[in-house]
């Protein structure tokens, strides 16, 4: 039983990371019906920005995270304006292929500029400490990851539910034409969505650096895919669904690794995807039309 709780705790921090990434997938999908396959790579860029601001500028982890979030917010907006906006009225498959192109571009430009070798996240940025809670071991890293992810989700929830911009995002996602008739600028709303989604991914990137200690230019692929599965699991386009889906994926993955074999953990993730698509394609939180926020 203790073992079970230990695995669950381990899974929480991984799940928090998946949830942060899944949110960006789901928000972008909710508003332009695009699976932004470059989203995991934006997370990777965030990890690198965090890495360099720690190793070159000597900033602490929080400053590194803010730095990464701001940089990726700009990057996300630029990607949308340059790559996706011109395709807004073309087929969805065209936009999807473009997203894969952007993904490859980000991966290989990073390899070109910074090399393919992995880098070790400076240990000094986050000296590890372990705490024992009634037999369950939890590290300060886990606590940091979970707390910062949850705080970011609370901020996001506030923005979406309470602010004028957040309400406009929901309106555009529900009925774009009606939103335009309210005087809402669709372009601006889409930009804001990309900015927020990408900055959450950047935060996740820095947290991945803290979690695994190493980063590399292709680090966005697998977590990106798993976060995508998490978003689908929760119901793509549905924000609370992405949060729950992320945690479920993280916990499931550590359970599979812990009780089965870590060889199966990726297979488990994609097994889940196939299962949802067969049983309830709209996801846990999805209604029958379930495409919207």
């Amino acid at each position: 039983m203790l073992e079970f709780f230990q695995q669950a705790v381990n899974g929480l921090s991984l799940g928090a990371i998946y949830a942060l990434i899944a949110l960006g997938y789901t928000m972008v999908y909710g508003i332009i019906l695009l699976i932004n396959f470059a989203h995991g790579d934006i997370m990777m860029v965030g990890a690198y920005v965090g890495f360099f601001s720690i190793s070159l500028l000597g900033s602490n982890i929080l400053v590194a995270m803010i730095f990464a979030m701001v940089t990726c917010a700009v990057l996300g907006v630029l990607i949308e304006k340059i790559a996706y906006k011109p395709l807004r009225n073309s087929t969805r498959i065209a936009a999807l292929i473009t997203a894969i192109g952007v993904s490859l571009f980000l991966e290989y430009i990073t390899i070109f500029l910074l090399g393919a070798t992995q880098r070790v996240f400076p240990a000094s940025a986050f000296p590890a400490k372990y705490y024992n809670l009634m037999g369950i071991v939890i590290s300060n890293k886990d606590i940091f990851i979970i707390v910062s992810a949850v705080l970011l989700m609370i901020v996001l929830h506030y923005i979406i539910k309470r602010t004028r911009t957040g309400k406009a995002m929901r309106a555009v996602s529900l009925d774009r034409e009606a939103a335009v008739l309210m005087g809402i600028s669709v372009d601006r709303t889409i930009s804001v969505t990309f900015a927020i989604g990408s900055s959450l991914a950047a935060a996740a990137g820095v947290l991945v650096g803290v979690y695994y200690n190493t980063i590399n230019p292709l680090m966005g692929i697998i977590p990106g895919l798993k976060a995508f599965v998490a978003a689908v699991l929760g119901g793509i386009g549905i924000i609370p669904g992405a949060m729950v889906g992320g945690f479920v994926m993280g916990i499931l993955e550590t359970m599979v690794s812990g009780y089965g074999s870590s060889l199966y953990r990726d297979a488990a993730a994609f097994g889940i995807l196939i299962l949802i698509l067969l049983v309830k394609p709209t996801g846990l939180f999805g209604k029958n039309n379930g495409e919207k926020v």
Binding site: A171, L174, G183, V293
Partner: peptide, 16 residues
Amino acid sequence: FSAMTVLENLEMGAYL
């Protein structure tokens, strides 16, 4: 806006 409250719908009308 079906998934928004009555109040929020009215707020959207006053968006600008």
